[in-house]
Design a protein around this nucleic acid. Structure first.
Length: 188
DNA sequence: TAGAGGATTGAT
DNA sequence: TCAATCCTCTAC
C-alpha cells in the first residue's frame, strides 16, 4: 500500500526520516520491470540549517523541487557523477527533505548483484533514478513509497550525518538514521 | 563568463 | 589518500 500524502507532513523532518526506515521504495523501469528495496538509512535536512540546499529559503533551479509539497522527489547530481534521491517533507514552500542513503533490495525485485544499494549514489543507479525523477509525486506509477517492514526502536540508530563538514555546528545534528547491524547500510 | 566546489565512490 | 566528472552557484 502506497504511503498517503499525510505521511509526509505534520511532523518534523527528523521524525519523518526515522519513520521512513523500513518503508519500501519502488521504481518502474522502461519495460515495466520493477526495482524495489527497503529503506535502511536516511538523513534529514531542514531549511533551518546550513547543511540543507534550501537553507535561508534560497531557491535555485537545482533545488526547486525541494519546495514542492511533502511527498515529492528531489533528485540532483553530486560530484558530477552520482544522483542523490531525496523525499520532500512538510508543506509546500518550506524546503525540508530526507536523503535516502541506503536500501536493502527485496528478493523479487530483480536487482542483479548484492551490495549495489549501500550508498546514496549507488542506490539511485540500481533503481535507475535520475533527473527525470526530479519533482515527481511519490504516489504515482513511476516511483513510489509504500508500507514495508517494521523497524523497532531498538533497531533504529540515530547519529550524525555524513559529508557535510562545511555546515559547521549544524554538521553535529543527530539527523542520520539507520537500521542497526544491517549489512546494506553505507560504510563510514 | 570564468572558476571553485560538492549530501560520493572505488581504486591506489 | 586521491582522482573522476560535470553541473550549479558566485563573483567579476
Amino acid at each position: 500500500m502506497k504511503l498517503p500524502p499525510s505521511f509526509y507532513v505534520g511532523h518534523p523532518v527528523s521524525y519523518i526520516a526515522r519513520s521512513l526506515l523500513g518503508k519500501r521504495l519502488v521504481t518502474s523501469g522502461v519495460n515495466g520491470t520493477l526495482q524495489a528495496g527497503w529503506i535502511v538509512e536516511t538523513e534529514a535536512y531542514s531549511h533551518r540549517e546550513r547543511g540543507c540546499h534550501a537553507f535561508g529559503n534560497k531557491k535555485t533551479p537545482r533545488n526547486e523541487a525541494m519546495f514542492l509539497p511533502g511527498g515529492h522527489a528531489y533528485v540532483y547530481l553530486c560530484y558530477g557523477i552520482h544522483w542523490m534521491f531525496n523525499v520532500v517533507t512538510g508543506p509546500e514552500g518550506k524546503g525540508d527533505a530526507v536523503l535516502i542513503r541506503a536500501l536493502q533490495p527485496v528478493p523479487e525485485a530483480g536487482i542483479p548483484s548484492p551490495r549495489v544499494t549501500s550508498g546514496p549514489g549507488k542506490l539511485t543507479k540500481a533503481l535507475h533514478i535520475n533527473r527525470s525523477h526530479n519533482g515527481l509525486w511519490l504516489g504515482g506509477n513511476t516511483i513510489w513509497l509504500e508500507e514495508g517492514i517494521k523497524v523497532s526502536k531498538a533497531q533504529a540508530v540515530q547519529t550524525t550525518r555524513i559529508g557535510i563538514d562545511y555546515a559547521g555546528p549544524d554538521a553535529l545534528l543527530p539527523w542520520r538514521f539507520y537500521v542497526k547491524d544491517n549489512p546494506w547500510v553505507s560504510r563510514k
